[in-house]
């Protein structure tokens, strides 16, 4: 190759490399978080569950031959001065059967506070079969000073839940979210 050919080829290498770099940066910064959420949603990784619309929930099949125990667990992050407890410790449901359960939250502090509940389903294999139509975790919750509130989750597990899973635990962690209310 003579000088000018090398120049052209060098420019090409630089251009292509910069394209790769830009693509990989976007992949890391923008795509990976989105992709991750997508993968987690579709495979139920990390205890992420699926949200059902009302229409979908109307068409649920119920498997009367099976009973699954659903346990409820609640955690309050120490930065949030609330109490938060499920009304029942566990329920037994048939796969496909919709069930409503209430949690009771109370603001123990002297000021208004916004909280956000983050859910987690264990075992992780059950997460993709765990469906909610209504949940207080879909939005942020604001409690006035001293206010108590019943918070509802309406859920089911689908009939494809693997046979060996007999107990599913639904856990919520409530975090203080005043800093993140601008959405």
């Amino acid at each position: 190759m003579d000088q000018s050919d090398i120049q052209t080829s060098n420019k090409k290498v630089v251009r292509n490399s910069i394209l790769v770099v830009a693509a990989m940066f976007s992949f890391g910064y923008l795509l990976l978080p989105a992709l991750y959420t997508l993968i987690c949603d579709s495979f139920g990784l990390n205890g992420q569950t699926e949200q059902l619309t009302n229409a979908e929930s109307a068409q649920l099949k119920v498997d009367k031959n099976r009973l699954v125990t659903i346990e409820f667990s609640s955690i309050v992050n120490s930065k949030l001065p609330w109490s938060f407890k499920p009304e029942v410790e566990s329920v037994k449901i048939h796969p496909g059967e919709l069930k409503r359960v209430n949690y009771l939250a109370k603001n123990l502090s002297g000021s208004d506070i916004v909280g956000q509940a983050i859910y987690s389903v264990t075992p992780v294999e059950a997460a993709r079969h765990f469906k909610k139509t209504e949940c207080f975790c879909f939005t942020q919750q604001r409690l006035k000073s001293g206010e108590s509130k019943e918070m509802t989750v309406l859920f089911t597990v689908d009939t494809d839940l693997p046979k060996e899973i007999k107990t599913v635990t639904l856990s919520y962690t409530f975090f203080r979210a005043d800093k993140y209310t601008s959405k």
Binding site: V20, A22, G28
Partner: peptide, 9 residues
């Protein structure tokens, strides 16, 4: 060039 941008991300 494939992974340093991911770290930057």
């Amino acid at each position: 060039i494939a992974v340093m941008p991911v770290l930057a991300g």
